Computed example of a mutant assay.
Amino acid sequence: MKKKMIPTTLLLSALIFSLSPICEAVWLTVPHTGSKCVSEEIQSNVVVLADYLVISEEHSIFPTVSVKVTAPYGSVLHHKENTTNGQFAFTTQESGTYLACFEADAKSHGNRDFSINIDWKTGIAAKDWDSIARKEKIEGVELELKKLEGAVEAIHENLIYLRNREAEMRIVSEKTNSRVAWYSIMSLGICIVVSGLQILYLKQYFEKKKLI
């Protein structure tokens, strides 16, 4: 019986799809008063690319929003007002939670809630592989191998990041346990000293009253 051979390109494509980070398409319902935010925890030195588009169910209303993207320590990475669509891109400088907030502009939405579509890509998913292929003059299996190499590097970096986070959490846990132990010892010592002082005071009191 002849075995059916699967093309190498398809195998590589399937492997890349399973290993590489998947871009996230997010739908947000923005209230006509207030704001709505989306966040993601990202490590440092990661490329982030996102496109956003305001969707209105009524064609006669064209709501606009104010967009603000902030880093974990509060620095503003992207800020745009009175817009219906746009894009932001940056490379993360520190690890932590990155926040993108969308706020409805007053009197642009007819006091109705509306939706925003966000195409959020990070890491290898944010790379423009067509440009890379043209620049390096590669195609076919060689391009798929390049994608696979990028996926493996991304996974390796994620593993290092998780290992470092685990080490940090272990250090914090050990310090916390040490502080709790010292606090318990100090509390016990204070209780013993206070009890001794109470006994001494009662003894002196009873001797003074000639009860003992």
Results as ranks from 00 to 15, higher is better:
residue 105 D to T: 12
residue 106 A to M: 12
residue 107 K to H: 07
residue 107 K to P: 00
residue 108 S to G: 04
residue 108 S to A: 05
residue 109 H to A: 13
residue 109 H to M: 12
residue 110 G to Q: 03
residue 111 N to C: 09
residue 111 N to R: 14
residue 112 R to G: 08
residue 113 D to E: 11
residue 113 D to T: 04
residue 113 D to K: 02
residue 114 F to G: 07
residue 114 F to R: 10
residue 115 S to V: 00
residue 116 I to F: 08
residue 116 I to Q: 09
residue 117 N to H: 08
residue 118 I to Y: 11
residue 119 D to R: 15
residue 119 D to Q: 15
residue 121 K to G: 05
residue 125 A to P: 03
residue 126 A to Y: 09
residue 126 A to P: 13
residue 127 K to Y: 07
residue 129 W to G: 05
residue 131 S to C: 01
residue 132 I to M: 05
residue 132 I to A: 02
residue 132 I to N: 03
residue 133 A to T: 07
residue 133 A to D: 02
residue 134 R to H: 08
residue 134 R to Y: 04
residue 134 R to E: 04
residue 135 K to I: 00
residue 137 K to G: 02
residue 140 G to D: 02
residue 141 V to Y: 02
residue 141 V to C: 01
residue 143 L to K: 14
residue 144 E to P: 01
residue 145 L to M: 13
residue 145 L to V: 11
residue 148 L to W: 06
residue 148 L to T: 02
residue 148 L to Q: 05
residue 151 A to F: 01
residue 151 A to M: 04
residue 155 I to H: 08
residue 156 H to A: 08
residue 156 H to C: 01
residue 158 N to A: 04
residue 161 Y to K: 09
residue 161 Y to I: 00
residue 162 L to W: 11
residue 162 L to Y: 14
residue 162 L to H: 11
residue 163 R to V: 01
residue 164 N to Y: 05
residue 167 A to L: 12
residue 167 A to R: 14
residue 167 A to Q: 13
residue 169 M to C: 04
residue 169 M to K: 12
residue 170 R to P: 00
residue 171 I to N: 12
residue 172 V to M: 11
residue 172 V to T: 11
residue 173 S to R: 07
residue 173 S to N: 07
residue 174 E to T: 08
residue 174 E to K: 13
residue 175 K to P: 00
residue 176 T to E: 14
residue 177 N to H: 12
residue 177 N to R: 15
residue 179 R to D: 01
residue 180 V to T: 08
residue 181 A to V: 07
residue 183 Y to A: 10
residue 184 S to W: 08
residue 184 S to L: 09
residue 184 S to N: 12
